[in-house]
Nucleic acid binder design. Structure first.
Length: 197
DNA sequence: ATTTTCAAT
């Protein structure tokens, strides 16, 4: 009697859920994804109650969060004559399989561009290849900084007027992960897959 | 300083 897909849809996260899942000095075993959709000119191009949402991976061996994002966007039937920008804040970077699905989706939906901002780099499996392919496919991908966490907090969290409170190592971790991501994206496609910094 | 990671014995 558990959890249908509707149960993972939240328009706002509670404070603890956000912090526990997005802080970059922990490694929780689930993934949250906060996204928003706008017209490429910066204004919201979708009905107000749909311009942003939050999804989470399905439990167990279920579907990853990114696939819910693609389903959501697909179901919105965004106007083919307009250009949309989807910004997505992920607590973990996509796995290779999700990266492939994202690339396939974007190839079929040329009017949609995607920016990924991730808190942490998911390093299981052939993750380097997946991130590189996203990058090569034109997806903006970067590591969340203080400003991004703060924006997420203000936009997707039921913060009750509480200002965002960074954890101790936020900036240092963010910089480390950014360097690591940079090394991954600059790496020669056929190079070694281990990235040591 | 690196982490053990879209969990479950």
């Amino acid at each position: 009697m558990e959890a249908g897909p509707e149960d993972w849809d939240r328009h706002l996260l509670d404070e603890n859920t956000f912090t526990q899942n997005f802080r970059n000095d922990h490694n929780p075993s689930k993934t949250y994804l906060c996204y928003q959709v706008e017209l490429s000119d910066g204004s919201s191009g979708v009905p107000l109650d749909q311009d942003k949402d939050i999804v989470q991976n399905e439990g167990g061996r279920g579907q990853h969060a990114e696939l819910f994002l693609l389903e959501h966007i697909h179901s919105r039937n965004l106007d083919q004559k307009l250009s949309y920008k989807v910004t997505c804040f992920l607590s973990w970077t996509p796995c290779e399989k999700c990266a492939e699905e994202i690339i396939r989706f974007l190839a079929k939906n040329r009017h949609v561009s995607l920016s990924i901002l991730a808190s942490r780099i998911y390093t299981m499996g052939p993750y380097v290849k997946g991130l590189r392919r996203l990058y090569d496919a034109g997806v903006h991908i970067s590591i969340m900084t203080f400003r991004d966490f703060e924006y997420c907090w203000q936009t997707f969290v039921d913060h009750q007027e509480t200002p965002f409170q960074p954890w101790a190592d936020l900036d240092r971790r963010s910089q480390q992960l950014s360097q690591q991501l940079w090394a991954i994206l600059q790496k020669e496609p056929e190079g070694w897959t281990s990235v040591c910094l």
